[in-house]
Design a protein around this nucleic acid. Structure first.
Lengths: 163, 163
DNA sequence: CCTGAAATCAGTAGGGA
DNA sequence: TCCCTACTGATTTCAGG
């Protein structure tokens, strides 16, 4: 398994600025990226490549509007299953397209999933499907704040709370 | 506000292929994108621009490894608060850097948050901070599957405008 | 980390199925 | 309507300092 090393101490303020700029728009040309952080284009290019090489940047993705794609309904589910049903349950859930996020948690409700659906009508089939593996608690997402990027307030002020 | 229109019926198979390619790597040059889906560079460029214009593509982001940034601990929290404390709670949580995701749910535990931290030591302060607004149930994320992209298996109703 | 040259890429114009 | 080829400017990469 991959040994995930914390390399944040090897990052300077320019690296963080590059990361923040890429969070805002990952398709920003490297040249403009360099302008934003006060570097020449080749220097910025090498920085970004280094961030990829050391594993800070894993990849680049596109932000989509699920509602525009006909997937307006988001549901959060918690599953409580038995010890011997856990593995089969996870393997099954990994193959369910509607399950867009799957996390194992501490506690009795050991699985947390986020489900994307066109409407609540489609929810019934998913609940029945997953219910075979254990108790399911379902909650519809009424409103979701846009995910917060990992900025310098988090990376540097680790654990910093308002004083 | 959110006049979110479902435009998935206006998307064809090529649009979905472009979206999937951008999910895999949002920094793919448009020219190579066109090669992947069997289109010339200008055609691919116009397609992508159209996907942006109609609101399917909201933006482009970078995927980071939180552990490499010194944020190895992920925590899922559920907050149960009272009617009059709800709004202040949300406003407060929106300003907490460690809260990277914030969703309002149906049911009694009306708030679901994901928190990013360097370690469990930093968790105590967050729990105490949020606990002022109501009952908090906390679970550490032991393992998270990589988020599943919204692919063609999910997006249906793609009325074939063209093949 | 900067400058400069070669290759690739992006945006526009014009024409065709 | 949608697509393709050609052209011009911008961008990226690689070399050398």
């Amino acid at each position: 398994m991959a040994t995930v090393r914390d390399v944040s101490s090897k990052l300077d303020s320019i690296d963080i600025a590059l990361i923040e700029a890429l969070q805002a728009n990952a398709r920003t040309p490297i040249a403009e990226l360099g302008r934003k952080v006060g570097l020449s284009q080749p220097a910025a290019s090498e920085r970004v490549r280094r961030l990829e090489d050391i594993g800070v940047i894993v990849g680049y993705g596109v932000r989509l509007d699920p509602a525009a794609l006909g997937l307006a309904t988001e549901v959060s589910m918690r599953v409580r299953t038995s010890f011997d049903r856990f593995r089969p349950c996870v393997e099954h859930l990994k193959g369910v397209p509607e399950v867009v996020q799957l996390r194992r948690l501490t506690g009795e409700e050991c699985l947390d999933l986020t489900v994307r659906l066109p409407d609540t009508v489609a929810l019934e089939a998913v609940i029945d499907d997953i219910g075979r593996f254990g108790d399911v608690r379902t909650a519809v997402v009424l409103h979701a704040e846009p995910p917060k990027p990992l900025g310098r307030t988090l990376i540097r002020g680790c654990g910093a709370r308002r004083a």
